[in-house]
């Protein structure tokens, strides 16, 4: 059973690596959105620093959402999902492998890129560990929750906007906790509470959403 998990993870990673443009899109989007803000609100370091927690998190959230629209579409159109559903392996395990592979190449890449963009916004070095840790805990939740929406809208020709409408409200707790942690770090307050909450959300999403994603896909395939 775990063998299939590893194989699917490797297969998805291979597929993503053969389409580097799709990998780069969310990252470039993330970088551009953050680069646009100083242009829009002016180069005042104080102001930028104050709004940077919300900004980084909002940009990360939109970048993840952008990358999720096509998450299952290819598998739906080429019949892979049907093969998953008729296979003897639990669908929840398969979707977990798929979403994790997707997260490693999008969410994790965002986490690695974030300190650089944080510096651009004038975030002090002391806030960097919290920025990294909060994104590291928060982006898997964004990917997993988004995958639920992607599974439900996969059968629709143009599911992109509907996906955003379905999923953005669910992102609110992650956004509040993530930017809250960074805000606290900026003011020199302990951020551990926020991070622990994020960690518990991550654990919850990791254990529960695969079942919701699997159910969504079964419905979409059975249509």
């Amino acid at each position: 059973m775990s063998n299939v998990f590893v194989l699917l993870f490797a297969r998805e990673a291979r597929l993503l690596c053969r389409r580097p443009a799709e990998l780069a899109n969310p990252l470039v989007f993330f970088a551009i959105v953050i680069a646009l803000f100083p242009l829009a609100v002016g180069p005042e370091t104080q102001l930028l620093q104050r709004i940077s927690p919300g900004l980084v998190w909002l940009a990360a959230l939109l970048a993840v959402l952008l990358s999720l629209d096509g998450l299952f579409r290819g598998d739906y159109e080429d019949g892979s999902l049907e093969q998953w559903v008729v296979s003897p392996h639990p669908l929840a395990l398969l979707v977990l492998a798929k979403v994790l592979a997707h997260w490693v190449f999008s969410g994790l890449a965002l986490v690695i890129l974030a300190p650089l963009l944080g510096l651009m916004l004038g975030l002090p070095g002391s806030a960097m560990p919290v920025l990294l840790l909060s994104l590291l805990l928060g982006t898997p939740v964004l990917s997993l929750l988004g995958a639920v929406g992607a599974a439900l809208t996969v059968g629709l020709k143009r599911g992109g906007l509907l996906l955003a409408l379905l999923i953005l409200p669910l992102y609110i707790p992650v956004l509040i906790l993530g930017s809250g942690a960074l805000q606290a770090a900026l003011q020199g307050l302990p951020a551990a509470g926020y991070l622990l909450w994020l960690a518990s959300l991550a654990a919850l999403a990791l254990t529960l959403t695969p079942f919701a994603i699997a159910a969504g896909l079964t419905i979409s395939v059975g249509e």
């Binding site: 291979r14 597929l15 053969r18 290819g74 080429d78 019949g79 892979s80 049907e82 093969q83 008729v86």
Partner: peptide, 14 residues
């Protein structure tokens, strides 16, 4: 059961 649908689950990139 061996199921091969109209689309056979073949990935073009692989």
């Amino acid at each position: 059961l061996l199921w091969i649908g109209h689309a056979a689950g073949i990935k073009g990139l692989l």
